[in-house]
């Protein structure tokens, strides 16, 4: 093991940036962000079970500027991971591996996730102020 000299693969900075690479990295990054977000889901449920005061406190935290930024970030992470996750599930069947299709579906994941974020927050804001 110690004296084998295997060729090293070049690291990230060697490659030209392409959308397929970005979608792959984002899938991991959003996955990690969403794993942290699971704690907020549990916090919300615990506060709802604990009583009105605790739930109001949760709403105030989430409705604060920092809370809103995090919520918008998490909503995009969720929609991106959802769209790109569906893309990966389809690719697991062996579909869509030709390079033009791969590039097109990469862009589709990014664009659809952004459209969903705009739609959802548009709905929240037009339905009457922040949560």
């Amino acid at each position: 093991m110690a004296d084998t000299r295997r060729p090293l693969s070049p690291h990230l900075q060697i490659y030209k940036w392409q959308v397929q690479m970005v979608t792959s990295i984002l899938h991991r990054a959003t996955g990690i962000a969403l794993a942290v977000g699971t704690l907020v889901v549990v916090w919300g449920l615990l506060s709802l079970a604990a009583g009105e005061a605790a739930f109001d406190q949760f709403k105030v935290c989430m409705g604060s500027p920092l809370g809103m930024i995090l919520l918008i970030g998490w909503s995009w992470a969720l929609f991106y991971h959802l769209c790109n996750g569906i893309r990966h599930l389809l690719q697991d069947t062996g579909a869509g591996y030709a390079i033009p299709q791969f590039v097109r579906s990469s862009w589709l994941s990014i664009v659809v996730s952004l459209v969903l974020v705009v739609l959802v927050w548009g709905y929240v804001l037009t339905a009457g102020g922040a949560a």
């Binding site: 889901v41 549990v42 449920l45 615990l46 709802l48 079970a49």
Partner: peptide, 16 residues
């Protein structure tokens, strides 16, 4: 952490 979080979440839903 995941087991703790999952059980806490489930327990909260059940209490409600």
């Amino acid at each position: 952490l995941a087991v703790l979080g999952a059980l806490a979440g489930v327990l909260a839903v059940l209490r409600i």
